[in-house]
């Protein structure tokens, strides 16, 4: 029983991480209908920036927010320079471009920052709360950060004009132009936000997995599974999906299929969800009357 609780808690903890990257994926999917396969690598790269900043002596939270700003700017720049020229090309070309981007970011990171594993600090105290042995403070803190991001996104999309405009562009670009929204900037903004959220998730992963250019590979797969499970067009759905995947990965890995086949969990979830409920558990069903 205790062991099971253990698995569930560590599942929730890794779920928080998947939820973070899943949110980033949803940002771009919502506004463009594309899945950015390079999202994890971009997050990893930003985490290296944070590491460098901390290494220069920047206090943790200073580095944290500077990195978010960097990631946002980089996201906007990538959209405008790399993705924009392809917006009229077929999906397959874009998938290839995403893969090219993945490769470029990944190898640039190992080129600039080297290939040795780096330890990354956690901003949370190391003594576990109430001396519990189920969940560390870093894990608790990560979950908290993810929940805060979800809350911010909720408010942003529901109540701010900018958030409304981003949703509008996702739904109907032509009508959006007709009310004066600059569609292309909204797409770039979506990329910026996604990159910023991804950077946060990278900085939360790094203390657990150690910083390394392949750090986000597995995380991306689970996050994709989580985003699909929860619904690619729904931020909090994707976050919940991330948590569910985390728990499934740990519990199923420990008791059912063995840790060696953990990735299969992601595979099975992706295929089953796509087949049975392509909109995901919490995906919005748009009703249109003609």
């Amino acid at each position: 029983m205790d062991a099971l609780l253990h698995q569930i808690f560590s599942g929730i903890a890794s779920g928080g991480i998947y939820a973070g990257l899943a949110l980033a994926l949803v940002m771009i999917y919502q506004s463009t209908g594309h899945i950015n396969f390079a999202q994890g690598e971009m997050a990893m790269f930003s985490t290296y920036i944070a590491w460098e900043l901390i290494d220069y002596g920047t206090p943790y939270w200073g580095a944290f927010f500077l990195t978010i700003v960097f990631a946002f700017a980089a996201g906007v720049a990538i959209e405008r320079l790399v993705i924009r020229p392809f917006h009229n090309l077929p999906v397959i070309a874009l998938i290839i471009v995403f893969i090219g981007l993945l490769v470029v970011v990944n190898s640039t990171a190992s080129w600039i920052f080297g290939t040795t594993l780096k330890t990354f600090p956690s901003p949370f105290p190391s003594e576990p709360l109430w001396n519990n042995h189920y969940i560390s403070n870093h894990e608790l803190g990560s979950i908290g950060v993810v929940l805060i991001i979800v809350a911010i996104l909720f408010v942003f999309f529901r109540y701010t004009t900018l958030g409304l405009a981003m949703r509008a562009v996702a739904e109907n670009p032509i009508s959006s132009r007709l009310v004066g929204i600059r569609v292309s900037w909204m797409l770039a903004l979506g990329w910026g936000l996604a990159a910023a959220i991804g950077a946060v998730s990278g900085m939360l992963v790094a203390p657990i997995l150690y910083l390394d250019s392949s750090m986000m590979g597995g995380v991306l797969i689970y996050s994709l599974a989580g985003a699909i499970l929860g619904g690619l067009d729904n931020p909090w759905g994707a976050a919940v999906g991330g948590f569910i995947i985390g728990i499934m990965e740990n519990v199923l890995g420990a008791y059912v299929i063995g840790t060696q086949l953990k990735f299969s969990v992601a595979l099975i979830v992706i295929v089953v969800v796509l087949l049975l409920r392509p909109a995901g558990l919490f995906g919005r069903t748009v009703v249109t009357r003609v």
């Binding site: 999906v91 998938i95 797969i221 060696q260 086949l261 299969s264 595979l267 992706i270």
Partner: peptide, 24 residues
């Protein structure tokens, strides 16, 4: 029942899983 990005994703998961199965 899948197309575009979705099929890419499902098959991506297959690609990631296979080495693990082979090592099992």
């Amino acid at each position: 029942r899948l197309s575009g990005h979705y099929l890419a994703l499902a098959s991506l998961a297959l690609a990631v899983t296979t080495p693990q199965v082979l090592k099992h």
